[in-house]
Every structure is written in C-alpha cells, then in structure tokens.
C-alpha cells in the first residue's frame, strides 16, 4: 500500500535528530560548515544532505515565533521530476511504497531541468551531474521499519504509515490545533506523500514549503505538458 509521511510541525522542537538519523542511515558525509549566525546548519539541502530542519524567527501578532520546518522530498504523487526525466533507470517510482527514487544514472539527465521542475526545490546535484534527495528510506520500509527520521523523533512530529492513515491523522490534528492556531493548514495533501501541518502562513517557514505555482508552471509547462500529451498513461502510474 502507498505510504505517506505526516509531519506535524506544531510539535517540532528542532532537536534535529531526524537530520542526523538521515545522515547515519544513508552513511552520508558531514559537510564542512561554519556558523553563519543561525542554528540552521548546513545552510541548505545538498547532494549529501537530504533532510534539513529550517528555522526562522518571525514576529506574528506581536509575538515572537521560532518556526521549524523539517524539509525533505515530498514524494509527489505525480512527480514532475520523474515525468520530466523520462528515464526509469534514473528516476522511478516504487509503486509498493510510493517512493520516488533517484539512481546513479541521474548523471545522464539534465540536472538543472530536474531541479527546476521541483515545486519544492528539493533535488541537489554534485559536480558530475548526479542528483540526489530523500529516498523515503525505501530499504527500511521494505523491511518493515519506519524511515530513520521517523524512528528517532521524540515528539510525534515525524509520522509514517499507510497513506489513508496519515491523511486521517493530518486532518484530525488540523482540527485539534485550529482553535490554538487559526491559520493552521495542511500543505498540498492531495499532491504529495509527505504531508505537512503548519501553524502559520506556510511561506513564513520557507519559500517552498507549499508548492510554488511559478515553479509548477515552469517545471510542467513545456516538457511535462508535451510528455503528458503523448503519454496518457502517466496518471495510471498511480496505484
């Protein structure tokens, strides 16, 4: 059955256990960082950083808020990157879990076009053109484990399970937090398998927290639209 994450940012303490667990499971090297005047580090996602807790200080209604956003690939239901790649040996979808997976063969793709197609600004390339991102810990999931970031989360921010269950959890948590956070919303729940609940305007957390319309248009407009014309089966790929 298709899997989903539910990421409840109203519970996140930015302990960044998820960020480290991701590196540990994937055996990704640390980046050589500097303190840039913020706790957020590395400054952005990279070829070797698939998960990043973004932090922003915002004054909302005269009250200081420190907004935490554990950013990662959304594993889109109709993933523009996959559609634009048109190369299943480089980018494919595991229909058993819904994971969108990148292989070493992404080196043969037009990396910038793939990156440009992402409405959430996720994929990152290395010098040789190979691109990478969160893989949903697909190997763990196939072995009955939750993704590493979910396993380590102490507060219940990171959740993972069957899509229906996660959608239900998202809706019920939204209803619970609405009285406290009237501006709370769930981000693009119909389009993605990584469903975020945020308490404030999504753009305050991060420009790409919610799908950017312009990038959707930019990514889909030409290549994807063309491909869709020729490939009426694209939507059938959804199980």
């Amino acid at each position: 059955m298709e899997k989903s994450f539910f990421i409840d940012t109203t519970l996140c303490t930015a302990c960044r256990g998820c960020q480290v667990a991701c590196k540990q499971w994937h055996d990704l090297p640390a980046e050589s960082t500097k303190n840039l005047g913020t706790f957020q580090n590395p400054p952005d996602l990279s070829f070797m950083t698939y998960k990043l807790v973004r932090m922003k200080e915002e004054i909302i209604d005269n009250k200081l808020n420190w907004l935490f956003f554990p950013d990662q690939c959304r594993h889109c239901i109709e993933a523009p990157c996959l559609q634009i790649a048109e190369n299943a040996s480089a980018i494919y979808r595991d229909d058993a879990t819904g994971a969108i997976l990148y292989t070493a063969k992404t080196k043969d793709l037009d990396a910038d076009a793939i990156i440009d197609s992402c409405p959430y600004n996720i994929p990152r390339k290395r010098e040789d053109g190979t691109i990478s991102k969160c893989d949903m810990c697909n190997d763990r999931v196939h072995n009955g484990l939750k993704p590493a970031c979910v396993g380590t989360c102490p507060t219940g921010t990171m959740n993972f399970g069957d899509r229906e269950e996660m959608v239900a959890m998202a809706n019920s948590r939204l209803a619970e937090v609405k009285p406290k956070y009237p501006k709370a919303s769930i981000l693009n729940p119909d389009d993605v398998n990584v469903i975020y609940l945020v308490a404030q305007e999504p753009k305050l957390y991060y420009d790409y927290a919610v799908a950017s319309r312009s990038s959707m248009e930019r990514g889909i407009s030409r290549k994807v639209a063309l491909r869709r014309m020729f490939s009426p089966f694209a939507s059938l790929m959804r199980v």
Binding site: P29, A30, S32, T33, N41
Partner: peptide
C-alpha cells in the same frame, strides 16, 4: 562526531 559538528561547528 562530524555529523554533530556539522550542526553546531563553532563557539558562538
């Protein structure tokens, strides 16, 4: 531990 130093690399 490099993964932790990545998060908080310097005295601040």
């Amino acid at each position: 531990q490099s993964w932790l130093m990545e998060l908080h690399p310097q005295m601040f």
